[in-house]
């Protein structure tokens, strides 16, 4: 039984706009999945289905094998936490602490449990010192981390992040990468994220779904997807800079191993230059 599964999921918005067409998706436990695709591909719509914010026009969304119903919607939202692309859509309380406590209070937890969860969530995202700060005075990266803390305080088993690095500076991106990796490695969470930052996909994802016009056009491991540059360019995406450079060198006859992450590429270059065996 997969933690999230969709079967032939279709969603049509008012005005007969087909946002999702026969989406079949599987998210096993403790995996990191990237969903990539151009703007308007249907990624955000799909994420809203995982959390029961939208209802399918046809097809099924199964959370831990159960379809989403009115009766289990609260349980679904405890299981699957959704972090919105724009943190301003999510953060509304006067202080960081109150905003992070919002979800746990709605779950009906007692005060002690809420306090504990807030402290843990803020510590995990590295914002323990910001408890009493006013959210709209924070930077974009800090707001993003508050938004994530607000969701992980509910201790979901799946964390869904819509464009987690959109609008962040390089330092902000690095912090988000660290936080996301921690969720998966340290807490065993399933992480599903969408992004246009292809380098982030190589660094974080174990499995990739490529989306275009409301359908999946490809799925596979990082190596399987990034070995198809034509597929990526057909959906207005590009290879990350390092594998692109290595491909170019290989096509010019230089013997070098392929590397998708920074670390893999560094090892490949050192090996090619004879610095390591």
């Amino acid at each position: 039984m997969h933690i999230i599964e969709t079967q032939d999921l279709c969603h049509t918005y008012k005005g007969n706009i087909d946002a999702l067409k026969n989406i079949s998706f599987i998210a096993p436990r403790n995996t990191r999945i990237a969903i990539i695709g151009p703007n308007g591909a249907g990624k955000s719509t799909l994420f809203k289905h995982f959390n029961g914010v939208l209802r399918p026009t046809s097809g099924k969304v199964l959370i831990r094998g159960e379809p989403i119903t009115k009766e289990n919607i609260r349980e679904v939202r405890r299981t699957v936490g959704l972090v919105f692309q724009n943190p301003d859509d999510q953060i509304f309380s006067p202080t960081v602490e109150q905003d992070v406590a919002f979800g746990p209070i709605n779950m009906g937890l007692d005060e002690e449990a809420v306090k504990h969860r807030v402290s843990e969530a803020l510590r995990t995202v590295g914002l323990s010192e910001y408890r009493t700060r006013v959210p709209h005075h924070l930077s974009g990266g800090e707001k993003k981390r508050v938004a994530i803390a607000g969701i992980i305080a509910m201790e979901p088993q799946v964390l869904v992040l819509d464009e987690p690095t959109a609008g962040l500076d390089p330092q902000g991106v690095r912090e988000i990468i660290r936080v996301i990796r921690d969720f998966s490695v340290r807490y065993g969470m399933t992480v599903i994220f969408s992004t246009h930052n292809i380098s982030l996909v190589a660094e974080l994802a174990e499995y990739i779904y490529v989306m275009n016009n409301g359908s999946f056009v490809a799925k596979g491991t990082v190596a399987e997807i990034f070995s198809q540059p034509d597929l990526l360019s057909s959906v207005r995406l590009d290879l990350p800079i390092l594998p692109k450079l290595i491909s170019s060198l290989r096509s010019q006859g230089i013997a070098i191993d392929m590397g998708y992450t920074y670390q893999e590429a560094e090892t490949a270059f050192l090996k090619a230059f004879g610095k390591i065996a």
């Binding site: 914010v53 939202r77 405890r78 919105f84 859509d89 999510q90 969701i151 509910m154």
Partner: peptide, 9 residues
């Protein structure tokens, strides 16, 4: 905003 409130129950 209302969607974000729904996701946090």
């Amino acid at each position: 905003v209302t969607d974000a409130l729904k996701t946090r129950l």
